[in-house]
Design a protein around this nucleic acid. Structure first.
Lengths: 358, 358
DNA sequence: CTGAAAGCGCTTACAG
DNA sequence: CTGAAAGCGCTTACAG
């Protein structure tokens, strides 16, 4: 209530929208700013009575601490950054969700940044985040060990997600793309398929390379395989499917390096009058939600994407708490989900694929 | 190179990971911190030569400005916050993508927060963001005008997305749910359907209420309609579909308040041996990607979700630049996307739905 | 248990 | 064109 006549900005004014600071609260409450700080931050040394009083005044004034000021002195932002290549589609949706849930549980805010078309953009994004976060989660095809040494402050805790960086200085959490592709290949072999086509992902993509490697190294001597170049897009899968349909000697089974390509391929095959899996079996990788809904439902490798985000954040928190132990590289297992696209007899077929009158 | 023997923390040390500050750059460059600040921020008053020199030293030292310190003095964080109810699914994925793209283009960072199960959680999230962002994008079922007056600093620029808040004090951007439902209803009427079922969304959801209203107020006198309660989940759509299948007098067409319920409904209908649209037509709302891929492809109302995010951010930026004009309420149009689920003869059918041998 | 004071790393009038 | 100094809003030893 003590309003000074000539005070330029009405600091304690409850009328307009001027920012309320800790000083205003201290003045109103009749205590020092130190006491306000302690009371509001739950320091043990404050009387319960004082705490209540200060809290009441702060609430009445709608006081919100200035984050930057606090960060400046505490050296903590309570924020983690997530540097992602894109935000489009289910994959990133799930990834962010996993990260967000874990961050929330830890009381951390989440700063996101995406759409880095090239290394320069990624570097700019990295720069913009540094000095604003306590830790960093990075997923980017443009990022290698050299890039990180160049652009990342070594003091900033960081965890790489699905990264090809194998440098001892960086912690990471990767999906076991190799193991997943291997498991799928063995599954197909176990079903009796011996003649394969593999639709690859982009040649510069680490996930894609690992999946290809897992496939390649699991093919037994008695089987044959050839590659079709793709780029993870539905479009490229469609093109591959057209090629397959045009062949006179078609493979028995197609393994696409991701679900979107498998779906594109499926359209091309069906369009050409081929039945899946009757004429040709088809498998994907990722288990995106659509995989269950298409006709026939798609056999694929399930990647628990939200778990990747969650796990990476937990890993990051561990590093933020103590940078002492050397960075660790972790791997997240995936599993084969058998559905109708590789097996006519599968129970996994959805009712939608076998309509009949009652 | 001027290293002082007893300096406790090796500030200019390029060896370890201690934080480099503007002082270190100033000392190394042999200028004042003011000059470093000006040079790095592109002030016009600095010599090109000085600027180059300072920039070189800063780069060599891997200097990154401390965001909090800068924010404290500039009163800007260059960050906007997005308060969302959830991050699950295509809708939020697209929304965040739209926001992120627009924010990037404006050089703004994006702080996200989600998963507010109730008003208390939303309030906590709101609090945590204030004092850390220059503006706020809010989408939350728990937020009404009273909540905002209570928890939101009036000085913080804010834009509500898809909000029922009609208070003159708040800016907003809403999808035209009413108009979309109206357009779909008229489309179905134009196709000759006269007997409808409408599967509603959650009763406390604003989007759901607007869609229902749009449907209700567009039904002509010669048509009949009844409601089935849903909650936007696929599961609830499935239940509605079971109910429909069990009726002896089925409606000619079902309009679900969102695509996920339409998909659940489709499964139940197909499972019961009913053909869509032969026995019963089906329409949804949202045009999520799956809508195109199911069999038959789903007639729906397209909501340009990324545009909602993009538009809301642009609206917010406008308010951040000048709070002078009174808050405005904008609306984003949507459009009917006719597909096979309401029309056997539609060209929109995917090849996948008409397989045949060559 | 509380207060006065220093200081976090910046930017920006104010002089020169 | 550049520097010295004040100050942004907090927290935290340091005294009492």
């Amino acid at each position: 209530m003590k309003t000074f006549t000539f005070e330029p900005t009405c600091r304690t004014g409850k009328g307009n929208g001027t920012v309320v600071t800790i000083k205003d609260v201290a003045r109103e409450a009749g205590v020092s700013v130190a006491t306000v700080s302690r009371a509001l931050n739950g320091a043990a040394s404050v009387t319960a009575q004082t705490r209540r009083h200060v809290a009441g005044v702060a609430a009445r004034l709608r006081y919100v601490p200035h984050g930057a000021a606090r960060s400046l002195v505490t050296r903590r932002t309570n924020t983690v950054g997530a540097l992602l290549p894109d935000l489009f589609g289910e994959f990133f949706s799930e990834l962010i969700r996993g990260i967000d849930l874990a961050a929330r549980a830890r009381g951390l805010q989440l700063l996101v940044s995406s759409s880095h078309g090239d290394a320069a953009e990624a570097a700019a994004a990295l720069r913009a985040m540094q000095g604003r976060v306590d830790g960093l989660l990075i997923m980017s095809p443009h990022v290698d060990a050299r890039f990180l040494k160049e652009h990342l402050a070594s003091a900033l805790p960081t965890v790489l997600m699905n990264s090809s960086v194998a440098d001892k200085d960086y912690a990471s959490l990767n999906v076991d793309n190799y193991g997943g592709a291997q498991a799928m290949t063995r599954h197909l072999l176990a079903q009796g398929y011996r003649d394969f086509a593999f639709i690859t992902g982009p040649s510069d993509n680490f996930d894609a390379a690992e999946r290809l490697k897992g496939f390649r190294e699991s093919i037994v001597a008695s089987a044959r395989a050839f590659l079709l170049q793709g780029d993870f897009s539905e479009e490229s899968g469609y093109r591959a499917g057209r090629q397959l349909a045009a062949m006179q000697q078609r493979p028995q089974a197609v393994f696409a390096a991701n679900d979107m390509m498998a779906i594109g391929c499926l359209f091309a095959l069906t369009e050409a009058g081929l039945r899946v899996p009757g004429d040709i079996a088809l498998a994907g990788f990722d288990d995106i939600p659509i995989a269950r809904y298409i006709n026939p439902p798609l056999t694929t490798v399930r990647v628990r994407i939200a778990d990747l985000g969650h796990g990476a954040l937990e890993h990051l928190v561990a590093r933020m708490e103590t940078m002492d132990p050397p960075p660790q590289r972790h791997t997240l297992a995936c599993e084969v989900v058998p559905r109708a696209s590789t097996d006519d007899a599968s129970d996994a077929r959805l009712p939608a694929s076998t309509p009949h009158r009652p």
